[in-house]
């Protein structure tokens, strides 16, 4: 089952069989109940999750407002990449919005292998860089506030 998940996961498509096998050795299937946290800001970043079912809220806590969700992560998405970069602490919270099933991968073991086998390191970095780029584009679009206040000189047709 785990082997099938890793073999078909879109993120891992470009991994070589031996890298996928390494991932398999570092991975377990987990279930996270609704409202439980997968990650908490500041805690040790030693793993990542491949979401199989359910959705996860990526959040920042603001004491004035509470937890602010800035992105929803869903099936086939990845939660967590801070395990790759020192000081390996989570930058955000991740909370299950509903019951979630996922594959949890041990980042510490993976990182150790990456340090000694650059080929594996390159493959994993390629996978995660792709996600980082997609998230960066999404974050930039979010920052643009495309549907927000407009210049009064803009046109007034029903389209934005």
């Amino acid at each position: 089952m785990l082997k099938d998940i890793l073999a078909t996961h879109p993120l891992l498509r470009k991994l070589s069989p031996d890298t996928r096998s390494l991932l398999h050795d570092c991975a377990i299937e987990v279930s996270i109940k609704k409202d439980e946290y997968l990650l908490k800001t500041g805690e040790n970043a030693d793993r990542f999750y491949l979401v199989q079912h359910g959705s996860v809220a990526l959040q920042i806590y603001d004491p004035r407002i509470g937890s602010i969700e800035f992105m929803t992560v869903q099936e086939n998405d990845v939660v967590g990449w801070s395990w790759m970069f020192p000081p390996c602490r989570w930058h955000f919270d991740a909370m299950a919005k509903e019951d979630v099933s996922a594959v949890q991968v041990d980042g510490v073991q993976l990182l150790l292998r990456c340090e000694t086998d650059y080929r594996i390191g390159y493959q994993l970095m390629s996978c995660f860089s792709q996600i980082m780029m997609e998230r960066l584009v999404a974050a930039r679009l979010q920052m643009l506030d495309l549907y927000g206040e407009r210049n009064p000189e803009e046109t007034e047709r029903g389209t934005p």
């Binding site: 959705s55 809220a57 969700e69 992105m71 929803t72 979010q142």
Partner: peptide, 19 residues
Amino acid sequence: ATVDRGTLGWHGNVGVVTT
């Protein structure tokens, strides 16, 4: 459906429509 900014009481997706 998705919203760019999650606010209190919204349980749906948060993120830009392209995602």
